[in-house]
Simulated scan of single mutants.
Amino acid sequence: MRDKLLPQLEAWHEEDEFEEIVNAVVEIPAEERDYELVNHLGRALNNLERYEEAVEQFQSVAEEGKVDPLWQYRIGFAYYYLDRYEEALRAFEAADRLEPGDEEIQEFLELIRDKLPGPEEEAAPDPADVHARAYADGTPEAALESDVDFTDLWEDSDLAIRQYVMAPPTDELIASVEEELVFRLPTFYVQMMKQHNGGIPHSRSFPVADPGSGENEHIIISGILGIGREKRHSLCGEAGSRFRIEQEGYPEFGVIICDCPSESEVVMLDYRESGNDGEPEVVHVDKANNYAITRLAPSFEAFIRGLVKE
């Protein structure tokens, strides 16, 4: 069956019958689709401008695709049209290393580099904004110039792409989400989301000292909510911060930033000490234990740095 299907998929592609390709491939159970079929599906989704779905498909075969210039080209194509230019650049640069000199790859590289600001174009931060987002230790620059490498932070599984990951937020979207939440989001978090908006990190365990035993317990997170509304697990999504605070009684002192495997636990930004112009602490809230609050970190950056593998 597969041997007959592949020539038909190519024929449909030549005839621009991309819906036919999608319909034919999705009829095959996901676990039975091999690398070639998934690539046909992803390419057709790209041609139908369904770029987020395309990324999800390409990510499902990422291990094989990393050494395939065509896979890198196709996922880079989807990232480009999602305005995720840094991810698109990495993909096309990988494609160029695997297949040097390809004209189409070079064209996309030029387009992407034109979209990304060069060092001379990066404007200095507004001092007032820096002050507003300053850390309590008096070093606001830490919020803007971090050495945290986000490249390997994320686990881009099918689940993560489907439930968490969105296109990078625009400044307008950030402003509207902050208005809806009634809290100003930490600069470090906003920078993270502009590179990768929501998702499941590889390291999801945060050690917490147990005063009784002197040993560490661990708070486990399921994922980090992104800035937006379209995904269920986003700040303003169907299972986002405002919804859970209003419907499930979580404290109104901040923003639910991470969900946990247990539906009765969340990780929150706590603005009680900092106010809306400072750097919120990160706390764990246990609804099942009378909304018990455990302080985790003095800032969101410190929380991210403290995550370890389970």
Rank of each mutant, 00 (worst) to 15 (best):
R90H: 07
E87N: 11
G237Q: 07
R232Q: 11
A134Y: 03
P117F: 09
P207M: 09
D277C: 03
D158A: 14
G42S: 09
R2T: 13
A30P: 05
E110K: 14
C258N: 07
V177F: 04
E93S: 13
E238I: 08
D102K: 12
A128P: 00
A123E: 15
D259Q: 09
K115C: 15
R97L: 15
Q163K: 13
N289G: 02
P119T: 02
E122W: 11
H40D: 09
E279R: 01
S157E: 06
I293N: 01
E104K: 14
L5Y: 01
L41N: 07
N276S: 04
V38K: 02
I75V: 15
P140F: 04
Q8H: 05
Y51P: 07
A142M: 12
E32R: 13
E17M: 11
Q59D: 13
D34T: 04
N47P: 00
L9W: 06
L98C: 06
S234N: 02
E64C: 08
E248F: 12
S157L: 04
V283P: 01
Q8L: 12
A160P: 01
E32D: 15
A136K: 01
E172I: 06
R97E: 15
A292M: 13
G65T: 01
E120I: 09
Q163N: 10
E110M: 10
V182C: 03
V148C: 03
V283E: 03
E63A: 15
V165T: 12
I112E: 05
A134V: 04
Y135M: 14
P127Y: 01
A44T: 03
E281S: 12
A24D: 10
E238P: 00
R97M: 12
P261R: 14
E172S: 11
S176A: 11
T151I: 10
R113G: 06
P29A: 09
H196M: 05
S60A: 15
P117R: 14
L6K: 12
A62Y: 12
A132V: 02
E103Q: 13
D3R: 14
L5R: 07
G65Q: 00
G223R: 02
D137Y: 08
E279F: 01
P117I: 08
E178F: 00
V267T: 00
H13I: 08
E87C: 08
Q247C: 09
W154H: 04
